[in-house]
């Protein structure tokens, strides 16, 4: 009996090179956060997260889970282990998406209804700055060195580059219609900005603000209007870019050097946001209309599983190791 248990333990240890991580998914319409286990891909919890939870992120040390409760006009902070709400952070009205400084503080929050980016200290709970940006700010990206925050404004159609020291806008890049997401590469040399209605991803040189290339999408038999890029994630080596294509129900796989689209992976319906596991073995996609998440095997570039979650999954973040 004891022998069997030991063998099982050893086996599971062997098949478990990286530890399991918790995956947190915000359910915009269900007002909850669903928790998955990245080893078994089973739902291990679902807890209330305020009204209209959208943007979701976690502190680098894994001790605080941040959720934009858009209709509560606040950021709710949860204990990722007990799922208890620890406190709230002032966010400005209608927080939609945010990005955490690589050091874990502060939080840069897009206030969609007020044309502002709010900077909030997660320790003192004070607002450090409010930066006026374009109409309907949404996408938030931060350079790996933490020097530059990029906000995209959906109706102004710009990527605004904000100096994190002075809170001043240093440059603006006009991109295609309805920019949704901004993502730097790990080395900070490139910035990807998705334009949902324009149907493109702009590859931008963050130093000059110049657009180097526009990635376009084409799937035979799919109306071009449905190929709406939203979430973007880049592998740490910069060689693969994954772009969620909304109502086309596909994730594009892009060569990070040639910017050629290599493949389109069929996922759930209306895919918006993406998150890697820390080991980059898996990419999780939130599928808002099918109420599930798809799990992509990153090396194989294949969808391996879909898991039902709450109502209208919006954002996703994976706890660090």
């Amino acid at each position: 009996m004891i022998r069997t248990t030991l063998a099982a333990l050893l086996l599971s240890a062997a098949a478990w090179p990286a530890q399991a991580n918790k995956v947190f998914i915000s359910n915009e319409r269900g007002n909850t956060v669903t928790v998955l286990d990245s080893e078994t891909w089973e739902v291990i919890a679902e807890f209330p997260a305020g009204n209209r939870p959208r943007g979701i992120t976690i502190s680098p040390d894994g001790t605080e889970l941040y959720v934009c409760a858009s209709d509560d006009d606040t950021v709710r902070v949860f204990d990722p282990n007990t799922y208890e709400e620890l406190h709230t952070l002032p966010s400005g009205p209608d927080p939609e998406l945010f990005v955490l400084h690589p050091s874990g503080n502060p939080l840069y929050i897009a206030n969609e209804d007020d044309n502002l980016v709010t900077v909030t200290d997660v320790e003192t709970h004070q607002i450090l700055a409010e930066i006026p940006v374009g109409v309907e700010p949404e996408g938030m990206g931060i350079s790996p060195d933490g020097a530059v925050v990029v906000n995209t404004s959906e109706t102004t159609n710009m990527a605004h580059f904000i100096d994190t020291q002075t809170f001043e806008i240093t440059q603006n890049t006009l991109v295609d219609q309805r920019p949704r997401f901004a993502q730097f590469t790990e080395d900070g040399s490139l910035l990807y900005v998705s334009s949902e209605i324009g149907g493109t991803v702009s590859v931008i040189d963050p130093a000059s603000g110049e657009i180097l290339h526009k990635i376009v999408f084409e799937v035979p038999g799919v109306q071009p209007e449905l190929l709406q890029p939203v979430g973007v994630r880049v592998t740490q080596d910069g060689r693969r870019v994954f772009v969620a294509l909304g109502p086309s129900n596909r994730v594009a796989v892009i060569d990070g050097e040639t910017w050629e689209v290599l493949d389109y992976l069929l996922v759930g319906q209306r895919v918006w946001q993406l998150a890697f596991t820390p080991d980059e073995k898996f990419l999780i996609t939130t599928n808002g209309n099918s109420n599930d998440v798809s799990i992509i095997d990153v090396a194989a570039e294949e969808v391996i599983l879909s898991v039902p979650v709450g109502q209208q999954p919006w954002g996703v973040v994976v706890a660090p190791d």
């Binding site: 006026p132 374009g134 109409v135 404004s153 109706t155 102004t156 159609n157 710009m158 806008i169 603006n172």
Partner: peptide, 10 residues
């Protein structure tokens, strides 16, 4: 208002 918000950057 929308146009002005955009216009301020240009």
């Amino acid at each position: 208002q929308d146009n002005l918000t955009t216009g301020q950057f240009l």
